[in-house]
Structure formats: structure tokens, C-alpha cells
Design a protein around this nucleic acid. Sequence first.
DNA 1: CGCTGAGTTGACAAGATTCAAGGGCCGTGG
DNA 2: CCACGGCCCTTGAATCTTGTCAACTCAGCG
Lengths: 252, 252
Amino acid sequence: MNNGRSTAGRTRTPPVACRACDLNEICRLTGLIAFEGGRSRQSTGALRTVRSGATLFRAGAPAHALYAVRQGMIKTTRMTTDGDERVIAFHAPGEVLGLEAFSMGTYACDASALEPSICCEVPLPLLGEANSHVRELSMAVVRLLSQAAAPKHDLARGSARQRVTNFLVDLAGRLSKRGLDAKQLILSMSRQEIASLLDTRIETVSRTLQQLNREKVIHVRGTRVKLLDLGKATDETATPLEHPGMGQESAG
Amino acid sequence: MNNGRSTAGRTRTPPVACRACDLNEICRLTGLIAFEGGRSRQSTGALRTVRSGATLFRAGAPAHALYAVRQGMIKTTRMTTDGDERVIAFHAPGEVLGLEAFSMGTYACDASALEPSICCEVPLPLLGEANSHVRELSMAVVRLLSQAAAPKHDLARGSARQRVTNFLVDLAGRLSKRGLDAKQLILSMSRQEIASLLDTRIETVSRTLQQLNREKVIHVRGTRVKLLDLGKATDETATPLEHPGMGQESAG
DNA sequence: CGCTGAGTTGACAAGATTCAAGGGCCGTGG
DNA sequence: CCACGGCCCTTGAATCTTGTCAACTCAGCG
């Protein structure tokens, strides 16, 4: 199940501040988090820890909750007809999983942890509850969903080089958006998982990373990637659709 | 602007019944359509006709409405940094455009007609209105968005052959879902537009279609494609995520 | 009746996959 | 503590697919 790689004892993807989470507004409106003088306080047992390689939920299982990644990294996958898994996405802290629950009633993907992770669980019934915040809550849910429904920048497009650079830029941008370090990436996913996401082969991912390394566009050693000058590597493709830029705010 | 191809005077994508439209529930709840003994009646000027090649809305423009394709075919595109357009999707009758409006306030793509088309326009303010149906309406919007937020089956994956067959199967399935003829496709989009959607080249699309034609998996002549036995062409990839199957109901 | 643009086809080059082998890191067991 | 084995990653070479360039066909239109 787990790839057994050496995330143990290493630097892990750090937790995100509630205020930088996509579920923040909704959590506040449902009362899942309370505020005390500007700082948020987590209430009740809405947290769920997921060991590395363990499953958060499975495709087809009845969906009773939304999840937000608080710490760590979660991958969503689906089985192909050949029986091997296809990576749909990697979810960084602050990002939400399971939005299909509202319409499908079941999850569309398997979700499992790439490293020891913590997720916030928001029961769906809470989001339909009639309380004083109904109106605001409903609008917050609509906004969240609308954001997810917007056409995404597809990483699996263009040459192998573009895919890999897009992948790195995308990941860095998403981390940066949450106030996490985006220059010193720790790739908690395997090359195989990256290849699956980018619809290419593990050898191609490896070669491309090494080539970028030789060109001093990045510095890569195992799971550690330092972004040096990805600007000159971003040849073409389309302008990203969801992440206006990388580099927004620092943590806290 | 228009590709000037010969959709004129030919068979066009026929209109979809309101009851088979993704916006149906929402239209009813907003009162945009009324029911008289089981059949729906369109009220007021919510219809918008779009000439072939004409634009429904543009990326970046303030978004004041959702659109549903009633008749015809709409493509959504985005400009690449090189200045040429990338096709994001083709929208068949019954499908909704502009769902990003709730969160972004502006449209994320250009939308234009591949053939003479008619769209239903649902002003956003209507969806936030306080009326007796608030609760049901809000939930309908959430369901619609959740559906769109579900991970999509990406057509631009796998070999050229898989991409083309996936494209055809996907299109056929979506038409069938609306009760339209799914065995006799009329491709109102150009080969170039297909190539753009599938992230490949026009020559590859052409060659692949001709090869499928030689293998009698399809019969293609210009814009007309007859699906003969795509089952044996669908080698692998993942199982579709959004279109459970093709063949649901015939038009009411 | 030739013009024009979309579509098709062929030849070749570039790029990605495949197959195979070697290196490095880590956990296990001696 | 160190050797061993497994797994992931890297690298090389051959092959296959796709992109590129160019010519040609076909249909619509003036």
C-alpha cells in the first residue's frame, strides 16, 4: 500500500493555518472553529490523522463528509481498467477533497496519504443544517464549489519537459498560496506517482528532472527539489487558470 | 472568427428537451420555465441565439449569468501565451457553461458557437434571490456545482488512438444522455479544434480517424462519423467518471 | 473554372516509451 | 555495527509513436 519511502524522520509538509484554508469560511460558519481575539481555535473531534500510505476514503464509498488537508499531502487516485492506479491529483495543506459528495453521494476517487497527514473532517449534514448562518453558509459552499468547477490548468499537456515544469510550478504555487515554503520542495510522492499524474513514464520524469538539474533550472536530489529559475523553463502552454501567481503571503 | 465550414444547410445538433437539461431543476425553481400539465413552457426572454462562430461570452468579462446550451454546440477556449487558442471543452445541448461565475465574478474561458446555437441565460441574481424556493434552489445549485467539481475523465491522455476514441465515446455518451442521436455524429468542430482539445496535432487526428475508418471501427467522411464498434477500440485508460454510460433515455 | 481553405497523406525528424542494467538509500538480520 | 536485499531512482540503447514539413485532394464559392 505505502511506497515505503523515506519520509520517516524527514521534513514533512507542515500544517497550514486555518485562515489560509479553503474551508476556513465554511468552518467558521458551521461553528467548527471558533475565534478568540483573532486567532482560531479548533473545536471538537473534527480532526483525522492518516498514516503514510493509509486511506482517507475510497471511491464508491458513501460520502458523509468533506475533507481539508491540514498537514501532509494526500493523493487522489482511480483504478484503470488494467488494474493499476492513476493519480488524479495531489492535495496540499489547505485544499479540499470530496466535493463531488454533494451530487454523487459517494466519493469518486480513492484518497490516501503520501506522508503522515492530518485532515479536517466536515460532516455534510452540518452544511445543510438550518441555523442562523444558513444563507452565508450556503453561499460559501457555492463559492467553494464554483472555484472547483472552474476549468483547471491541465498538467498532463505538452512535452515531457513542460509537464514536469508545470507540475513543479503548480505545486510550488499552491504551497506558496498557503504560506508554505515553495522554493524547497519535498516531493512526498514517488516518481511513479508523478508519472501517473502527468500521463508519462517514470523514466521520462526522472530524465526530465535530471536535465533540468543539469541546466541549473532546478536542483534535485531524491525527494528534495530546489527551484532556481523555472521562469526560463516555462516555455509555453496556457496561463494557469486557478493560481494567479505564486507568492502571496507568508505564514501567520 | 468562424471557421467558415459547411455547417450551413446541413443537419445540426438538435435542441434538447428542458427535462433533459442540467439546468432544468434550477430553471423550474427560479420560475424561468413553468409547467403546464407535464410539459414545460419557456417564459420571458431568457433565450439567446448565437450565430456560428459568434461569441457567447469572453474570458475575463464580468459574469452575470449561467448559460445552458439548448441547441447547437458551444466550444470554450483559452488563449495560450503563444497567442493561439486552446480548446477546453465542447458543450452539447443540455450542458451548462459559466459555473465559475459564482466564485470568480468573471468568466474563465471564451465561449463561442461551432454552429448556429441557442442558449438559455440564467441571470445570477435570480439564483441568490430570496423567494419561497430559496432552500431548494440553493441545494440545486450546490448539486450542479458539485457535479462539475467532480474529477473529470481527461480526454487528453494516452495514445493518439485512445484520445480520439475517448473523444468520440465521450461525445456520443453526452449526446445520448440528452436523448440525441449518438450513433450518427456530426462533428461541428474542425479537426484543428479536436486536436487542440486532445493536445495533439491535426495530422494525428486525421490519421487516427482514417485508421479507425479502415478498421471499420467507425465510418468517417468529413464531418460525419458513424460509430460502428468502438467497444473493441477502447483499449484501456480509466473508466469514465461522469458519464456512467451512453444510452439513457430517448427524447421526451 | 480556378481559388481557397480544410482535410488527407507521405517522408522524415524529434521525442517518448520500452527494455535492460546499474547505483543509492534504507531497513532487516546476522 | 555491518552486510544483505529490496525498492526506488537513474541511465543507456533500441524501438515506436508522434510531430513536422510538404504536397496533394476535395468541396464550396466567387
